[in-house]
């Protein structure tokens, strides 16, 4: 799916990440932890090609990111669902249209997918907010909408940056359950989070690997969680 080979990334002067290698295989479930500012978001951006590493190689679906043109990136992003920490939407369109946006831009907004949309909105607890505009949503609602948007295309990989940051425990359990269901369907999941309780809850339900970024390196965290 996604392979990183000895990659490094530096912003301006300092190196943020160095010598990182990782292979995300189909059906794997990863958590990514680390102190804030350690480079979790940058790491996720490297994984879906929003950033190009300053050294090393990133391969997305067997394509080297350096050789991909803008259309290749667009097509790759239809297979990678991304949830950002600060979710952005088209503020002039209602939530339902925003969640359906990936279908719209790829020309797959047919009846079958639209009925899935209702189910999905209900699942993330936005069933009665379909016609609200994104600026009217709370932080938690925005995150749920972003997650729904990320998974509506049934992508091969879901990358989520603190997807449960603004939601209560019950909702975070539901979102986690959704991601676990997707994982059982063979999707590759990577969640960057601070929330150790979430990781523990997930470990009881699905086989996960926990990665930790510390001192610019990526380490496999022990079973101590």
């Amino acid at each position: 799916m996604i392979e990183l080979e000895n990659i490094a990334y530096s912003y301006g002067g300092g190196e943020l990440l160095s010598d990182i290698s990782l292979k995300l295989s189909p059906g794997s479930f990863h958590f990514l932890t680390g102190p804030s500012g350690s480079g979790k978001t940058t790491f996720l951006k490297l994984c879906y090609g929003a950033l190009t590493p300053t050294a090393g190689q990133v391969r997305i679906f067997d394509q080297d990111v350096r050789t991909m043109n803008r259309d290749d990136h667009a097509l790759a992003r239809r297979r990678v669902g991304v949830v950002h920490q600060d979710c952005q939407f088209l503020d002039h369109l209602p939530v339902a249209d925003n969640i359906a946006l990936p279908l719209m831009v790829s020309g797959r907004d047919d009846i079958e997918n639209v009925s899935n949309l209702k189910e999905l909105m209900h699942w993330v607890g936005l069933g009665n907010r379909a016609s609200a505009l994104p600026p009217e949503l709370s932080g938690g609602e925005r995150q749920r909408a972003a997650l729904a948007r990320a998974v509506i295309m049934s992508p091969d990989v879901v990358l989520a940056d603190e997807p449960t940051g603004n939601v209560d425990w019950e909702m975070s359990q539901r979102l986690l359950q959704l991601l676990i269901e997707l994982n059982r369907m063979g999707k590759t999941i990577m969640i960057a989070t601070h929330d150790l309780n979430l990781i523990r809850a997930a470990k009881s339900k699905v086989q996960t690997r926990v990665l930790r970024i510390a001192n610019r390196k990526l380490q496999l965290a022990g079973a101590d969680l």
């Binding site: 667009a74 992003r77 991304v82 946006l101 831009v105």
Partner: peptide, 16 residues
């Protein structure tokens, strides 16, 4: 710019 960033994120091609 934000609209374009969102569209790019969800996989819209430049042509679209």
């Amino acid at each position: 710019a934000q609209v374009i960033a969102v569209l790019r994120l969800v996989g819209a091609r430049d042509g679209y």
